[in-house]
């Protein structure tokens, strides 16, 4: 029981990261109907910008943890936002009306480019971050002496993720920008006929997705204490799986899918084999694509034709 609770806590923490990345996949898919294969690498860049910011802050002697975290998050979001914007501008915009294979290939190209560019700038070795948040609360202890711990880090991660997701959901549901994004998603030509600047809206969608991935990158860095130029590939595919599991195009789907994938991965590693945990996640991708292509929370399509 105690072991189960501990795994659940760990799984939800990891799931929060996948959920944040998955939102970017799902939003871009919603608006232009394409998978942004460079999104995992945007997440990785978020992690790198976080660690660079941390080191720069250290040089200036800023070590107060809350301030450092906020600076890392803001810088990571700003830089990944720029990268997300560039990916759309360079990799997608010219190909928006091309056959679907073309933007797919260009996105994979963008992904390879981003990995190599970070590798060149930052080196191929992984970068460690000293633990900046430690300690936690001991929730319960079993008779065999196994203690369930909820780290302060995990609390911060869950609170931050919840705040970001709630704020983001409200933004999409309530603000004029969110309404314009949904309009583009549902009928782009009509949105344009009502005066929506569609190019700008699509750019903003990429930027917002990237900013959320940056938050995920920062969390990843804090949680694992390490980042390398290749980390975006695997995390990206897992988050993509989460988006598909939840129902691609659906925001709550991405969040729920992310949490589920995180929990499944951690449980598989904890109860079966940690060597094959990635395989377990990809099996889910395959099964969902075959048996449940609209996902758990597919788009709420109650439409008359």
């Amino acid at each position: 029981m105690e072991y189960f609770v501990q795994q659940l806590i760990n799984g939800l923490t990891l799931g929060a990261v996948y959920g944040l990345i998955a939102i970017g996949y799902t939003m871009v898919y919603g608006i232009i109907g394409m998978i942004n294969f460079a999104h995992g690498d945007i997440f990785m860049i978020g992690g790198f910008v976080s660690i660079i910011t941390f080191m720069v802050l250290g040089v200036f002697g800023i070590t107060w943890v809350p301030l450092a975290l906020v600076c890392m998050l803001v810088m990571a979001m700003a830089f990944t936002g720029l990268h997300g914007w560039a990916v759309e501008r360079i990799g997608y915009r010219a190909l928006r009306n091309a056959p679907r294979l073309a933007p797919l290939i260009s996105a994979i190209g963008m992904s390879i480019f981003l990995q190599n560019y970070v590798q060149l700038l930052q080196g191929a070795r992984n970068k460690p971050l000293p633990p900046i948040i430690s300690g936690g609360i001991e929730l319960m202890t079993s008779s065999e002496g196994f203690t369930v711990k909820l780290g302060y880090m995990q609390i911060i991660i869950m609170v931050t993720t919840t705040v970001i997701m709630v704020g983001f959901t409200l933004m999409i549901a309530r603000t004029p920008l969110g309404r314009q994004q949904r309009a583009c998603e549902q009928d782009m030509k009509m949105a344009r006929l009502l005066g929506v600047n569609v190019d700008r809206t699509i750019s903003l969608t990429f930027i917002m997705g990237a900013a959320l991935a940056a938050a995920a990158g920062l969390i990843w860095l804090l949680y694992y204490g390490i980042i390398d130029f290749y980390v975006g590939f695997l995390a990206g595919i897992k988050a993509f799986t989460a988006a598909v599991l939840g129902g691609i195009g659906s925001l709550p789907g991405a969040m729920v899918g992310g949490l589920l994938i995180g929990v499944i991965e951690v449980f598989y590693a904890g109860y079966f084999s940690s060597a094959y945990k990635d395989v377990a996640v990809f099996m889910i991708l395959v099964l969902v694509l075959i048996f449940l292509p609209t996902g758990l929370i597919g788009r709420p399509d109650i439409e008359k034709v």
């Binding site: 314009q180 949904r182 549902q186 399509d301 439409e303």
Partner: peptide, 12 residues
Amino acid sequence: FPRMTLLENLQM
């Protein structure tokens, strides 16, 4: 816009 309310359509 099918997945928006009537009011949201008018807001658009």
